[in-house]
Design a protein around this nucleic acid. Structure first.
Lengths: 145, 145
DNA sequence: CTACAAGTTCAAGTGAGCTTGAAGTCAAGG
DNA sequence: CCTTGACTTCAAGCTCACTTGAACTTGTAG
């Protein structure tokens, strides 16, 4: 398939596909002309990438996951489901967080408890500031996750 | 409170606080020295900002929400809960999406259906590509949301 | 008075995830 | 032969959410 066909069928812009290839997330061969030719199996890979992004993984993390697929052959159902297993956890964690946020939103911001340095919801690890850059460690802890 | 105290109590870096003030998300007065002095109520505002970010709102969207708070007085419980109401929807949508992703992950990527231009899960609006930049319209539809 | 920490502004840098533009190549149709 | 359009590379640009650095002023402790 040409890059434009892959783009059309996947909904991902050609520029993004080249970008992904650059990053090693997908592969292609070259026609004599130098044009990319993609195998149909790339569509499933792209699907995985798109899904994983929605789940909240970075492209780097997605790359790590994709690297676990068997090299040299087209991955089958079981290869994919092995990868998928780790997602479920991730998704559940995220859902849990959202549930916590939802209740915190009424129980915590609505009431008077939200002093931020006290509130268990906002600050579950009781961390002081300065333990890292910006607010991004908040609520779900340091980004080992 | 000084900026460093707000930073310590909120867990948000001073630079981020200045950034938020620049963006109009928080306010301060100035001591004779030109140093910022924050009212205690800013902590709740910051809490709201941090929470809202975790829920997935951009700072711009958060600004719009915060602008709905009554001007000229410290917001009370009811002011906050009015804002919060719209969150619940947003959170629920996001949870729904994650649930869909979770099932799609086993039902769709695991099996053979994931052709991306067909799969209802990946492409619920049956959109062709080219309808926008990048893969970001995927799965949850165009960003009117 | 001297340090020094903490504050200020403003400009520039960072990283993620792409997009856009310039300049050029290649294949097919008229 | 000429145009058109799809492709190529490479560099630069963009948005978001901040961070960092330079240069400077203020407040506090000894």
């Amino acid at each position: 398939m040409t890059i434009s066909e892959v783009s059309r069928r996947s909904g991902v812009a050609s520029s993004a596909l080249r970008f992904y290839e650059d990053k090693g997330l997908i592969e292609s061969e070259r026609a004599g002309s130098g044009h990319r030719r993609f195998d149909r199996s790339v569509l499933r890979r792209i699907a995985f990438i798109v899904f994983a992004q929605r789940v909240g993984l970075s492209l780097a993390e997605i790359g790590v996951e994709l690297a676990k697929l068997p090299p040299g052959r087209v991955p089958d159902r079981r290869d994919w489901s092995r990868l998928s297993a780790r997602w479920s956890e991730r998704i559940d964690e995220r859902i849990d967080e959202l549930e916590r946020l939802k209740s915190g939103l009424t129980e915590c911001i609505g009431c008077g408890c939200l002093s931020l340095d006290r509130c268990k919801l906002a600050n579950p690890d009781d961390r002081a500031a300065g333990a890292g850059p910006g607010p991004r460690y908040w609520i779900s802890g340091p980004p080992k996750s």
